[in-house]
Amino acid sequence: MTTALIAGREIHVDEEGFMTDPAEWNEEMAAVLAKNIGIDELTPDHWKVIRYLREDLAAQGETPTLRRVSLNIGITTKQLFELFPKKPGKKMAYLAGVPKPKGCI
């Protein structure tokens, strides 16, 4: 297990850079993580997705997939690709400090 310095704190991450302990995450960290993946500003829609990911992981024990996110919080797949360009599933998980989604769809 490696660690990375995020917002001045040592955080546990896996080899791809995802945080391994969601409890180490906090909201201030999200802004720093966003810059790391080329998102300059977190909009209310970004936050809606981030919060849902954390809530759903806590409730289901698994990071939700893009489809689950879009069906449950009313943000379309198209919007998800706009909010988190190219790799929406991984980018949203990275920002929320949760493991990358495992589901296929």
């Binding site: 917002a7 995802f18 990358k100």
Partner: peptide, 11 residues
């Protein structure tokens, strides 16, 4: 200002 550190999954 913190340094931008691209995570491995995007590198």
């Amino acid at each position: 200002e913190t340094e931008v550190r691209t995570p491995a999954f995007l590198s």
